[in-house]
Nucleic acid binder design. Structure first.
Lengths: 191, 191
DNA sequence: TATTGTTATACTCTATAACTATA
DNA sequence: TATAGTTATAGAGTATAACAATA
């Protein structure tokens, strides 16, 4: 949030600053800096996975499936920080696209493990480089200071995460992601 | 339905990592770091202005009014990156709380300038310190490296903003802000 | 009865467009 | 006719809760 000395209540003393850009007014603002950087990053991420059903969130599901982070849908929903009802729709779409599959758990017939298909794994591999490139683009302005910045950023993040743990990186991605087109209608029930 | 494309088992050398925390798995992830930090910051911001109608966005309106950033509602909406119809509701609420007022423009009776009241200015002043404190808390872990980090952060942000200008810092605040309670219904028309 | 996943419903937020009053 | 602001309506995204199958 911006600071700077206040002016007038009811009646303004004029003095429009319309000419100054928001960046000029806010560049020393911590929240503004964070927001700008994250927004830039998320825009790129969104583009990278624009063809993945569910966008960044869908990609996260694939990632979770590949890394075997969750034993079943409920666990995955908890880890990704999304509602389990939403996850159902997401998996529906990803499964329809042939990127993941629901694998019944032999020991508990209620439970389903989400696994990636070959196509899902191929897609995942394909996009990892793009993410790295995006990061490089954003940090390029720092030149030789990149490593130092990343180290500091990590320290702050680890600290912040201890105070207020976040299960998932792309929780934020999702919150920031606007339109991704209408959600296709449900498929027939299991059984 | 999905064709049983080959299931992808666990993945390169990854047995179950269920025990590892998300932070451990992701700490070297750029997007994750950014997201965690921003989320932590936004939680605090949300708390600070929880009693302000419209939350962080309402506070931004007050801020814009105090700093005389916009000549009328339309300009303010553009600068804050929000829809002008949404701004109408926001101003309604803030005006109802006595924090801002609509000031008719003598030269154009269609136009309204938004100004802060004494109460609005007092509130604004009151919360500025809290924002600074939040920033300090988050960065405290860096000790003597705080200044260096902020400098680097600014460089990255300025760079990112040039590539993809953002009008407003708290655009992101808003996108990330979930529930703020039901929106009170409209007031009677102007006349 | 509790839990896993699914389906149905309601609610919030935002955007689109229609409307008024000025210009 | 165009513009500033307001109001009304519809859309998308999310959460809440009811449901079926299984434990």
């Amino acid at each position: 949030m911006p600071q700077e000395a206040a002016i007038v209540p009811p009646v303004p003393g004029s003095a429009d600053r319309g000419e100054q850009t928001a960046a000029e007014l806010l560049k020393d603002d911590f929240g503004w800096s964070l927001g700008v950087i994250l927004r830039r990053y998320l825009r790129a991420v969104e583009e990278i996975v624009v063809d993945v059903p569910g966008g960044p969130r869908g990609y996260q599901v694939i990632n979770s499936a590949i890394q075997n982070l969750a034993v079943n849908q409920g666990a995955m929903a908890a880890q990704l920080g999304i509602d389990r009802t939403v996850l159902t729709y997401l998996i529906d779409d990803l499964e329809g696209a042939g990127l993941v599959a629901r694998q019944p758990d032999p020991t508990d017939r209620r439970s389903r493990r989400v696994v990636a298909t070959e196509a899902g794994l191929a897609l995942w591999r394909d996009r990892q480089n793009a993410f790295a490139q995006t990061e490089a683009d954003i940090l390029s302005v720092l030149g030789g200071d990149q490593a130092a910045f990343k180290e500091l950023l990590q320290r702050v993040a680890m600290h912040a995460d201890r105070l207020d743990p976040v299960n998932n990186a792309c929780q934020v991605v999702e919150d920031l992601t606007e339109d991704r087109g209408p959600r296709p209608r449900r498929r027939p029930s299991r059984t």
